[in-house]
Computed example of a mutant assay.
Amino acid sequence: MSEPAIVAAGLVKRFGSIDALRGVDLEARAGTVLGLLGPNGAGKTTVVRILATLLRPDAGTARVMGLDVVGQAAAVRRQIGLSGQYAAVDPYLTGRENLQLIGRLSGLSRTLARRRGDELLDSFDLTGAADRVLRGYSGGMRRRLDVAASLIAQPSVQFLDEPTTGLDPRGRIGLWHAIEALAAQGTTVLLTTQYLEEADQLADTIAVLDAGRVIAAGTSDQLKAQVGGARLELRAAQGIDPAAVAAAVAHLGSGPPVINTEDGRVVLPVADGPAVLGDAAVRLAADDVRVTDLALRRPSLDDVFLALTGQTASPRTASDPAETRSS
Results as ranks from 00 to 15, higher is better:
227 V>D: 06
289 V>Y: 06
240 I>Y: 09
283 R>T: 06
295 A>Y: 04
225 A>L: 14
208 V>L: 15
199 A>C: 05
274 P>L: 09
272 D>Q: 14
271 A>T: 14
296 L>W: 03
240 I>H: 06
278 G>W: 12
272 D>C: 05
295 A>I: 05
183 A>N: 02
243 A>Q: 12
179 I>E: 01
211 A>K: 11
298 R>V: 00
240 I>P: 03
266 V>R: 08
189 V>N: 06
219 T>S: 13
253 G>Y: 13
275 A>H: 13
168 D>F: 14
193 T>E: 03
207 A>K: 01
279 D>P: 02
182 L>R: 01
276 V>G: 02
212 G>F: 14
265 R>G: 09
195 Y>H: 09
226 Q>N: 14
172 R>C: 00
226 Q>A: 15
293 D>I: 06
275 A>C: 10
186 G>L: 07
212 G>N: 11
182 L>D: 00
228 G>S: 15
234 L>R: 01
190 L>G: 01
203 A>Y: 06
204 D>I: 11
299 P>W: 08
263 D>N: 13
240 I>D: 05
276 V>H: 10
285 A>D: 09
213 R>S: 15
232 L>S: 04
249 V>M: 07
224 K>R: 15
237 A>N: 08
276 V>E: 08
191 L>N: 02
270 V>C: 10
263 D>Q: 08
287 D>M: 10
214 V>R: 01
219 T>L: 10
284 L>I: 04
300 S>T: 14
179 I>L: 05
170 R>N: 09
229 G>V: 14
191 L>F: 05
202 L>E: 02
171 G>C: 13
287 D>S: 13
291 V>Y: 02
209 L>Y: 10
296 L>N: 01
252 L>I: 11
233 E>H: 13
238 Q>P: 09
184 A>M: 00
295 A>R: 10
301 L>K: 00
267 V>T: 15
215 I>F: 10
199 A>H: 04
176 W>G: 02
192 T>E: 03
242 P>H: 06
187 T>H: 03
193 T>Y: 03
261 T>N: 04
210 D>M: 08
287 D>E: 14
213 R>H: 14
279 D>W: 11
207 A>W: 06
233 E>A: 14
258 V>F: 06
280 A>T: 08
229 G>F: 15
236 A>F: 08
233 E>S: 14
258 V>T: 14
178 A>P: 02
299 P>F: 09
228 G>E: 15
186 G>P: 02
233 E>Q: 15
200 D>N: 07
211 A>V: 07
289 V>Q: 02
204 D>R: 11
276 V>F: 09
186 G>N: 04
297 R>P: 00
285 A>S: 10
248 A>P: 02
213 R>W: 11
195 Y>T: 01
297 R>N: 05
220 S>E: 07
